[in-house]
Design a protein around this nucleic acid. Structure first.
Lengths: 237, 237
DNA sequence: AATATAAATATTGGATCCAATTTATGCATA
DNA sequence: TATGCATAAATTGGATCCAATATTTATATT
């Protein structure tokens, strides 16, 4: 699929994730096609694709609606992520990490350490942390040699806390955020240690708690948003 | 989506799952549209939908191919199912089963018991077991009150052993199959007991092993198929 | 026989049109 | 004012056509 088809999918996805298309908002083929300056055909395809990605919900006879995500859904997705990444860590420990993977994980851990060594953290640091965090998790999933894990995780792809591709933080309290992400990074050290030493159960337990540790923050941030406070989300493309 | 659009998706899905469209086979829009007696439009939509379901793989410039499923993929998927259904059982234990759910699970357990009380099992029994099994698992997932679990499980929907919607058995050795499914059904009893008594960790461990217990059978059956022996699969629609 | 090039064929993506269905609006009546 | 009916508008699903691209086949050359 070449332009503008893939372009329409990406564009709409971006508009949903950025909040430009608000949750609950209705989308129909003809107005959307006009807005994006294409015919209905790629829009039709895009709608169905994004529906299958879980970003849109089909209405009967009236287009689609941007899916509202409830707090309970986010919590449930965090738990699912916990067991899936826990399984990935276990399987990574049961396999042998390649030399390249080991080296890259070590490098990523060092990157994180350098960020926290300063004693404080700013938004730029968090963007760096975000990339490091994402890559760290990715390598572990790759090291599991189990494609079904990535598949199963794909439905969480765009939810803060439930996915490493979306990192939420409170810009107004960077001290707390420093402590939170430092704690998460210590988990990274621990899980690497467990994997490296072939300790499958330990790796799984750490990784699972690594995800579950975000449950409380997810609730807190959800309440902040309900109170009209702005929570910043760094989103991977 | 009304006919023939939904019809095309279902029809193609059925043709893939039944083996009528063999794994590795190439599909293109125009011949498929002719074969099904529709225009290309619903076929195009169907292809993309089934691609997202994981049943087709897109080729560049030459249509789609029915995806081959490797033994490693099945094994990996069984493990994923284990952790997801384990989580579901844990969360069901942490919630309180409704009276209706409790009664229905009891009824399903009794149905299974009646099947095995005969001391042997035939294909008709297995079809009944299949329905009972599927519903049993479904109720537990519902009782978890976590929609993300069903979402994450959806990618396994069509793989024998990795999903309760596809049940594989060896018609030529029904004694062994009797023992195997009886064992599985004892797991059902145990996990119900754990859930009913609010024992989350126990429920999770049982359910996880319930899935993992199929790993060996998946390998055995895969080898039988490679040897040209026919394995029968009961598939839900 | 092997290689390169040109022509033919297959295929996809997008645009446009038509028909069917659903929803919204306007008007008439009680 | 509320309700029902008719009409208009909105919307989707499918069919068809066109253009671009990729692949295959045929032909020419070495």
């Amino acid at each position: 699929m070449s332009k503008p088809g893939q372009h329409v999918i990406s564009r709409l996805r971006q508009m949903i994730l950025s909040g430009e298309l608000e949750s609950g908002q209705r989308l129909a083929e003809i107005p959307t096609a006009e807005q994006l300056g294409v015919s209905r055909t790629p829009v039709r395809i895009a709608f169905r694709t994004l529906e299958q990605e879980g970003l849109l919900t089909k209405l009967s006879g009236r287009g689609y609606r941007v899916r509202r995500v409830t707090q309970a859904e986010i919590s449930g997705s965090i738990e699912v992520r916990g067991v899936l990444e826990g399984l990935a860590a276990r399987q990574a420990a049961e396999n042998t990490l390649s030399k390249a993977q080991t080296n890259e994980l070590r490098e990523l851990l060092k990157q994180g350490d350098d960020l926290f060594a300063k004693g404080n953290i700013n938004e730029q640091d968090l963007a760096i942390y975000h990339d490091m965090n994402q890559r760290f998790h990715q390598i572990i999933i790759e090291a599991s040699l189990n494609p079904a894990i990535a598949e199963a995780l794909s439905r969480n792809e765009h939810l803060p806390f439930a996915s490493v591709s979306a990192l939420a933080f409170d810009r107004n309290n960077l001290t707390q955020e420093y402590r939170r992400f430092n704690f998460a990074h210590m988990h990274h050290h621990a899980v690497f240690d467990a994997i490296h030493n072939g300790q499958g159960s330990r790796a799984e337990a750490i990784m699972r708690e690594h995800a579950n540790a975000t449950l409380g923050y997810a609730k807190t941030f959800s309440q902040k948003e309900e109170n009209g406070e702005k929570v910043h989300v760094i989103q991977s493309k």
